[in-house]
């Protein structure tokens, strides 16, 4: 069993974790303009913030610049899956 090691960018390959930035929760769709104030507040501010494996946006900001979706354990910081985010 090896260490989880550096973060693996789908395009750039294994890189030091310092090159990546957390990009927030992958939001579902952006609520319509007519949505309620509470719905808009939920979209803006409420987060899953799961303890354990969480789905997160990451950006390879000191690299290819791609937005990525990672399944990462928020206690051990081990990334189980990472892939390109799509529109």
């Amino acid at each position: 069993m090896t260490n989880p090691g550096p973060m693996i960018c789908p395009f750039c390959g294994p890189r030091d974790a310092g090159e990546f930035r957390y990009g927030g929760d992958p939001k579902a769709a952006r609520p319509a303009f007519g949505s309620s104030d509470a719905e808009w507040a939920g979209y803006l501010y409420v987060r899953e913030n799961a303890r354990g494996v969480a789905k997160e946006y990451w950006v390879h900001s000191q690299g290819c610049g791609q937005w990525l979706i990672a399944e990462r354990d928020t206690v051990t910081h081990v990334i189980q899956r990472i892939s390109e985010a799509t529109a």
Partner: peptide, 17 residues
């Protein structure tokens, strides 16, 4: 200068920190 270049001196993509 770059822990990434310590991991892989010939990175697949050119941009590094």
């Amino acid at each position: 200068g770059s822990a990434s270049l310590a991991i892989d001196p010939n990175p697949r993509a050119a941009a590094v920190g």
